[in-house]
Amino acid sequence: MTGAAAARPRGAGSHGSAPETVREALRVSISSGELAPGSQLRQDELAERFGTSRIPVREALRQLEAEGFVTFLPNRGAVVSDLSIDEVIELLEIRIALECHALRLAIPAMGESDLEEAKAILQSYDEEPDPAKWGTFNWKFHEMLYIPCNRPRLLSMIEANYGHVSRFTRTLVSRAAGKERPQREHYHLLELCRDGQIEKAVRLLREHIVETQKTLRSAQRHAARDLGSGG
């Protein structure tokens, strides 16, 4: 959780601000892998951490439950949700639908500053040696491409879906795929956006995410084989 979120004063802002602050901070922690699947989320501990009562914490957890990030279990309370490999594959299919639509809407509205900022993100991505951090750059790049679509609800859905996917693919896929191929595709995608090649860009984006599905399935098979062989 971010220090800024934890430091928000008790009762700050409107009635909805405290639950929103807690919800957003927890969602970031879950998406980043800081809070692993199965981690227990105790309301009293969270209330103390965020400097609030248990009521906004409870509301935030219910919102996260609706988004699929949290599950309420008998005798355990709220825990970070887990997902099967098939559920992650389905979320990647949803990602294709949402992000391809957003990109199609965004390209005609992209300005030079949008394109340059996306390029700067890729350059920082190139220089990052830690696979655990690649997912953050990946998200920032994709987000930058979609922001010009100016559809807040669509962007919110994309961010939530990406958060679900990334906590299961962030390290596994990054280590299995490396970053040479994804980065090559990112730069190509950026050039297609710059040239206004909407359909080619959307097709490449779809293929880019499908490749993540394939990599995830392959990594799962290798992990199962290694487990079976006692490796």
Rank of each mutant, 00 (worst) to 15 (best):
E45M: 10
K179I: 11
G163Q: 09
L154R: 11
A109Y: 04
G11A: 11
L92Q: 12
A97Q: 13
F141H: 00
S53A: 13
T171P: 01
E93L: 10
E116Y: 01
G228W: 09
G111A: 09
A120Y: 03
I107T: 13
A66N: 11
R181N: 05
D126L: 08
R153K: 13
I96W: 03
R151M: 12
A132T: 10
P148Q: 05
S32D: 11
R217I: 15
A18I: 01
K214Q: 13
L204W: 04
R23W: 08
E199F: 02
E67H: 07
Q63V: 05
R54Y: 06
G11T: 06
L35P: 06
E143S: 12
A18D: 12
S218E: 14
L205V: 05
R225T: 14
R42F: 14
P19Q: 03
A106Y: 08
A120K: 11
L190R: 00
A5L: 04
H188S: 07
M1V: 10
Q123G: 02
C193F: 02
L64A: 03
I198S: 01
A18G: 12
S174E: 01
L61P: 03
L41I: 07
K140Q: 13
T71D: 14
P19R: 07
S53I: 09
P9Y: 05
V57C: 06
L64D: 01
G38E: 14
L204A: 07
K179Q: 15
E45V: 04
A219I: 06
D195Y: 07
T52Q: 07
E143L: 11
E48Y: 10
R58V: 03
P37N: 08
L190I: 00
L73V: 14
L73D: 08
D82C: 03
T136H: 11
L155D: 02
E93G: 15
P37H: 10
I147T: 14
A36L: 12
E185P: 00
A66G: 10
F69R: 04
R170Y: 08
T21K: 00
H142S: 00
S31V: 02
W139A: 01
N138I: 00
F137S: 01
R225L: 14
A177C: 10
H222A: 09
E93W: 08
S229F: 15
K119H: 13
H101M: 13
F50Y: 14
D130Q: 09
N150C: 08
T215A: 14
G3F: 06
D226P: 01
P148H: 05
L26D: 02
